[in-house]
């Protein structure tokens, strides 16, 4: 159950994320929206489905950025009225490229990942920020959801909407770049295993969405199948093949602790 204040904040979050990304772009800071908010921004035409499928309100905004802009990002958010979390500054000493901010009035929390997303699996993205705007490319958004080890029902809903609104194919606006997805997963067996498991689980979850029209459901299932085939067909790296020999006998993901 959410409070009226939380609901209000949740409604404001997508607009605030877009505003921040545009303001940053005006200052030549590439700041791209990712996470669930990016799904909302990229899939506005189907946004009504979010509530019907039971998605919980947004709590925070996630961005991808470049580590070389770190100092300017801190200054930018300070100018926008956000306070930096001192603990996130301390993380840098340990090699973690991450900044966390919070707005004292709206309580909107912002997470900025720099150069790579290091979660259950790692996605390097330093060269991907100029591909799309104001959000990260749909292929990376898909990967960022597929890398989750303890996937939630909200993640399934996000993935459903993303696939409903984006045909997998050659990378171009409005499409999920299959080459990007397949090449990343062909390098890392653990990530490949996680992603293929999550795609299989997603297919099951989609089948259970009664609020999803039949045609939409078929479309999502067809796209999952196209993705799976492309991922399977991609030639795997030596490192992937070597790790595949051990399989799940060794932990294939990183533990993600509370931030």
């Amino acid at each position: 159950m959410t409070t009226p204040t939380a609901d209000l904040r949740s409604q404001r979050i997508p607009a605030e994320a877009t505003r921040l990304a545009e303001q940053a772009e005006a200052r030549s800071i590439p700041l791209r929206i990712t996470g669930s908010v990016a799904v909302f921004v990229l899939c506005r035409e189907n946004a009504d489905l979010l509530a019907k499928l039971g998605r919980r309100p947004y709590h925070d905004i996630d961005f991808w950025a470049l580590d070389r802009d770190r100092k300017r990002i801190v200054e930018f958010f300070a100018a926008e009225g956000y306070s930096v979390d001192p603990e996130s500054l301390h993380l840098r000493e340990w090699g973690i490229k991450r900044l966390i901010f919070e707005h004292p009035e709206t309580s909107i929390k912002v997470d900025v990942f720099m150069d790579e997303l290091v979660m259950a699996h790692t996605i390097p993205f330093a060269d991907r920020l100029r591909v799309d705007s104001p959000c990260i490319p749909p292929a990376d958004l898909l990967l960022s959801k597929l890398q989750i080890h303890e996937i939630t029902s909200n993640d399934f809903i996000d993935l459903t909407l993303l696939l409903l609104g984006h045909e997998p194919g050659e990378e171009q606006p409005g499409r999920i770049g299959l080459d990007r997805v397949a090449s990343i997963l062909a390098e890392d067996w653990g990530f490949w295993y996680e992603a293929t498991q999550n795609l299989a689980a997603l297919e099951g979850a989609v089948a259970g969405y009664s609020a999803l029209p039949g045609a939409a459901r078929d479309s999502v299932v067809r796209r999952i199948s196209a993705l799976s085939q492309r991922i399977e067909a991609e030639p795997k790296s030596r490192r992937w093949r070597w790790r595949a020999r051990t399989g799940t006998r060794r932990r294939w993901y990183e533990h993600v602790s509370e931030a």
Binding site: L91, E150, S257
Partner: peptide, 23 residues
Amino acid sequence: SQPQIPTQPGVFTRASSGLVRQV
């Protein structure tokens, strides 16, 4: 004593983006 995020069997929940420590 930090409160735990409530969970149901088979369903994961996550309050925020989380963090992978480096050590």
